[in-house]
């Protein structure tokens, strides 16, 4: 799906936990996430902390969208 969005001319960032799949499938901008059933959250944290974590991940995704890439890049920093 990311590839079709990319093909349509819209930059896209893939946020997922199993990055090898994303790489195989052919996503270009990839941001690793927390876990399969809660990629953008962590139920062990309290609500405010969890939201902070989510915001941090989304900001990483935005950063990826602002970054020039020539091929596949996993934004894991």
């Amino acid at each position: 799906m990311v590839k079709e969005i990319e093909r349509a001319g819209i930059p896209v960032v893939h946020m997922c936990t199993i990055t090898p799949i994303s790489l195989t499938v052919g996503a270009n901008r990839i941001v690793p996430t927390i876990a399969i059933p809660h990629p953008l959250g962590n139920p062990a944290l309290d609500k405010a902390e969890e939201k902070k974590l989510r915001r941090h991940l989304v900001e990483k995704a935005l950063k990826a969208l602002e970054t020039h890439v020539d091929g596949q890049v996993v934004f894991d920093k």
């Binding site: 969005i5 819209i10 896209v12 893939h14 996503a27 996430t33 969208l65």
Partner: peptide
């Protein structure tokens, strides 16, 4: 199927002037 769905809604996103997409997967 996935390819078809995304190809279709990507055109809608384009027509609506969307500049970028965040796709999340579980």
């Amino acid at each position: 199927s996935a390819k078809k769905y995304a190809a279709e809604y990507a055109q809608k996103l384009k027509a609506d002037g969307v500049d970028a997409v965040i796709m999340t997967s579980t």
